[in-house]
Structure formats: C-alpha cells, structure tokens
C-alpha cells in the first residue's frame, strides 16, 4: 500500500484533499497519525498569537520609516556631491603623477656634420705631412692664402688624387 505524500497530508489538513486521500487516511493508521500530528501543531499555532503593540506604536513605526527614508536621501545626496569631487581629485592626482614621471628616453640626435675617421693607410696624408714639414723648414715658402682650408675640405678621393699628382711631380723633379 502506498502511503500519502507529505503534500497530500497537508492538503487534507487544510481541507483541500481529494476523496481518495481522505479514504486512505481513514483506512491507514500511519497516515491518520501524520494528519493528526499536523492538526495538533496547527492547534498550538492558533494559540500563539503575536502580542499586540500599543496603538501608539504604529505612528512611531511610520515616523521611524519616514526618518530612515530622509536619512537615506541625505546620504544619497552626499554621495552625489562626493563622487564628482572624488573623480576630480583622482584626475588631478593622475595628471600630477604623470608630470612627475622621468622623461621618456629620447634617441640622441646626430650632429649635422661629423668628421670622417682618418684612414690609417692613406698615402696622401703622409705626402701632406711631408709638405707641412717642408713648409716649416723652408721659411721662404709662403703658404698660398686659403690652402689649408682647401686641403681640409678635400675628400679622401681628392686627397688620394692630389697625393698621386704630387708624387708624380716629385719623381720628375
């Protein structure tokens, strides 16, 4: 025999049960006991009402609710002021801390002009050194005006050409 479910017992206790459940409860001692258990609890509950507060209490309750709503609104207003202020403070801080950062590394700028490295094996240089020594030794020799500047401006290729020309002239003389 299948006993009544908990739900069916409650339906019987509440007067909502079907005829078949009622018949079962009449015939089944175990289910009848469960129904009586619940009815006994209901009887106890009906004798345990909540103490009624003073009639003045209800106005106090409403007043308390009004107060809480007013406090809540005040708090919310404070937040609406504080949030933009906090945002502004955060923005100022971010800007300030960004300015204090070390400057980003900048690639060193190359000078517009840089001297070419001196070639170690440049015959022209030795010729020019020889000329300079000759010039120092020969006091009668006057350096033509602008010669030093001209020589300094020569490219390697021109220096080499000049050296070969001078070497050829030296061989002839």
């Amino acid at each position: 025999m299948t006993h009544l479910s908990d739900e069916s017992v409650i339906e019987l206790v509440m007067g909502e049960g079907g005829a078949s459940d009622l018949e079962h409860a009449d015939a089944c001692e175990a289910c009848a006991r469960r129904v009586e258990l619940c009815r006994g609890a209901l009887a106890l509950l009906q004798r345990a009402d909540v103490p009624e507060p003073s009639p003045l209490y209800w106005e106090a309750l409403r007043s308390g609710v009004r107060q809480r709503i007013a406090d809540d609104k005040r708090r919310a207003s404070a937040w609406t002021l504080l949030v933009p202020l906090a945002a502004a403070a955060a923005l100022v801080f971010v800007l300030w801390s960004g300015g204090a950062k070390p400057p980003a590394a900048v690639a060193p700028s190359l000078p517009a002009w840089s001297p070419l490295p001196v070639a170690e094996e440049d015959d022209g240089l030795r010729v020019l050194e020889g000329l300079a020594l000759t010039a120092d030794a020969d006091t009668d020799w006057d350096e033509p005006e602008g010669l030093s500047a001209y020589v300094a401006d020569l490219t390697d290729e021109d220096s080499r050409t000049l050296a070969e020309t001078l070497r050829g002239q030296g061989g002839e003389s």
């Binding site: 017992v9 609890a41 209901l42």
Partner: peptide, 10 residues
Amino acid sequence: NLFHALANLR
C-alpha cells in the same frame, strides 16, 4: 516544507 514544519513543531 509546511508538512515538515508542522511535524517538527509538534
């Protein structure tokens, strides 16, 4: 739940 509440209470 109601059944268990009543049974527990009893």
